[in-house]
Structures are given as C-alpha cells and as structure tokens.
Amino acid sequence: MNRNEIELKVQALVDGELTGSEAEALRQRINDDAGLQQLHASLTQMRGLIADSELPRPLPESGDFYWNKIAETIEREESAGERAAPPAPASRWLLRWLTPLVGVSAVVLLLTLQQPTAPDLGIMLSGDHELELSSDEIDVMTYNTDDDSMSIVWLDYSMDIQKDYMELWLD
C-alpha cells in the first residue's frame, strides 16, 4: 500500500467506512506515524466543520410565482398523461409482438393446408373458410380463390393493443 492509499484509508476510518479488524490495524499504524496522526486530526476536524454547514437559503423569487410554475407543470403533464395510453405492462408488451406473430403463423398454416401435397392433418376446410380474430384492435380480411388454390389474409393491427387476451380460430 503506497502513501496515497494509506491516506485514503485514514479518511475511510474517519468516515466510519472501515470494518473492525481493518480499522484496528490502521489505528495501530496511525499511532506509530506522526504524519498520519496529523492527517487523521485534520480530516476529523474538517468533517465536523462541513457536516452541518449548509446555509439556509431563501428562494430568490416569490413563493406564489414559484408554486404557480409547479402547479402549471403538474396540470400540463397530467393532461398529457390522460391523452396518452397508460404504460403497457409486460403481458401487453408480449401481446404486442405475439399478436402479429400468431397472425402470420395462421397465414402460413392456411397456405400450407392449401397445398395439394400438404399432409392430411385431419382438418377439413371448406372453400370459404375464414380467419377470424376476436381482438377489436385487429382487422382481418381474407380472400379465397379455388381456381388458384390460394388464400390471402390481410391483417391490420394497431401497435397499442389494449386487449388482455386474443383468441384465434379457424372457422
């Protein structure tokens, strides 16, 4: 430990930041070193001086003027908060990303089932099947054409989904 490190330890001792055994060892060292004794005394005195020295300081402007700005800011931010959507909890955050993912998965499933070579999954679909989502936040349009063996599904979803649940099924 160099001199500077020892000085910082002395300060830690004065500030009560050292543990019992460490503090005891340092006290022994201070007893044997006049320079450290002087430093210890100086730091102890300085600590006592500053601790209670914060000046009371009156506001440089009137209390009413000061309060009015606070009140105006509170009112403005509360109005803005009411207009904005409430912060989304984790489950909603998950749904925000899960919803389009489920939608896209459904489309892929539909297209797979439409393939002539698709394995028989035991799901019978009529020619006019539709994809339906119960979430009000998501608009779904489907277009089926038997001639081209193709289904097109159009999902229109908002990024601020407020529903706590969503059900997806094939009809």
Binding site: E54, L55, P56, R57, P58, L59, G63, Y66, W67, A71
Partner: peptide, 15 residues
C-alpha cells in the same frame, strides 16, 4: 401539496 411546497421550498432550493 402546495402547503408542503410552502414549508420545504427553501430547503429544496438550498440543496
């Protein structure tokens, strides 16, 4: 809340 501000505004400003 305004009363709290009135009581402690000087301390907050001083800090």
């Amino acid at each position: 809340f305004e009363e709290l501000v009135s009581r402690y505004r000087d301390r907050a400003y001083a800090r």
